[in-house]
Simulated assay, not measured.
Amino acid sequence: MSEVDTKRPGQIILGWWSQNIGAREAAHARALAARLRRAGPVAVLSEAAVHDLARVLRVTEAAALIRLVQVLAEVREHTSRPLASALGGDPAAMSALRFQRLMRVSDDDLTDALRRAIAMADRRCNVAALGEDMLHWSEKTRSRWCFQYFGAAAPDALKDGADASDEEISQ
């Protein structure tokens, strides 16, 4: 089994983000992030780095891949704090009503809604957790985000399966 096979998807995503778009002091990272933020679906899929990520993650659904990289391109700094936690708190970066709308947004509008949310969180969050959530966006993910937003401990049922604990994927 190779090293890639033993890594969680979040760890792979964080490594890819760090190498390709996270180091904004490098011209190539700034340029790729800008292209991904502004690009349409075909232009996103025209980037070799995007296909490198898809190959390692074994992502075959183009829409999920596009959504993932466009959302990641908005993040400027990796922290240990999940995006939902960064949006909540006292004072909250995002109002509870706006957060409720974010949780109800359709898959078609998810990318734009999350990009706006990332901007409200000062473009800082846990890249690994965000990446895994983008790959496995579901009712379970939305429920976990609600607990994170309000700073409450999530039930164990929301922590199992494809979702990892914040400690595991913040490294």
Results as ranks from 00 to 15, higher is better:
M1I: 12
M1Q: 12
E3T: 13
E3W: 14
V4N: 10
D5A: 13
T6M: 13
I12K: 15
I13S: 02
L14G: 13
G15E: 14
W17C: 02
W17P: 02
I21R: 09
I21A: 02
A23T: 07
A27T: 15
A31N: 06
L32H: 11
R35I: 03
R37N: 02
A39N: 03
P41F: 00
P41M: 08
E47M: 03
A48C: 05
A49N: 00
V50Q: 00
V50A: 00
V50F: 00
H51S: 07
D52I: 09
D52G: 07
L53D: 01
R55P: 02
R55E: 07
L57D: 00
E61H: 09
A62Q: 05
A63I: 09
A63E: 09
L65K: 04
L65W: 03
L65C: 06
I66P: 00
R67A: 08
V69T: 02
Q70V: 00
Q70R: 05
V71G: 04
A73W: 02
A73T: 00
E74R: 02
R76P: 03
R76I: 08
R76T: 13
E77C: 08
H78F: 05
H78M: 03
T79Y: 03
R81D: 04
P82Y: 07
A84M: 01
S85F: 02
L87I: 01
G88S: 03
G88W: 14
G88K: 10
G89F: 12
D90L: 13
P91E: 06
A92T: 07
A93P: 02
S95E: 01
A96C: 12
R98T: 13
F99K: 03
Q100E: 14
Q100G: 07
R104N: 10
V105A: 13
V105L: 05
S106M: 01
D107M: 08
D108V: 03
D109C: 05
D109Y: 11
D109N: 10
D112I: 09
D112A: 15
D112N: 10
D112Y: 08
L114S: 04
L114C: 08
L114W: 14
A117Q: 04
A117F: 11
I118A: 04
I118H: 05
M120N: 10
A121E: 02
A121L: 06
D122G: 06
R123K: 11
R123S: 13
R123D: 07
C125N: 01
C125E: 00
N126I: 00
A129N: 10
G131Q: 05
E132S: 10
L135N: 02
L135Y: 00
W137G: 11
S138G: 07
E139V: 12
K140F: 08
T141Y: 11
R142V: 12
R142C: 11
R144K: 14
F147M: 13
F147I: 11
F147H: 14
F147E: 15
F147A: 12
Q148L: 09
F150Y: 15
F150M: 15
F150W: 15
G151H: 10
G151D: 13
A154C: 11
A154F: 13
A157D: 09
A157L: 08
A157Q: 10
L158K: 06
K159N: 15
K159H: 09
D160N: 12
D160Q: 15
G161A: 06
G161R: 11
A162C: 04
D163C: 12
D163K: 11
A164F: 07
S165C: 05
D166K: 10
E167C: 08
E167T: 05
E168Y: 12
I169P: 05
S170P: 03
Q171E: 13
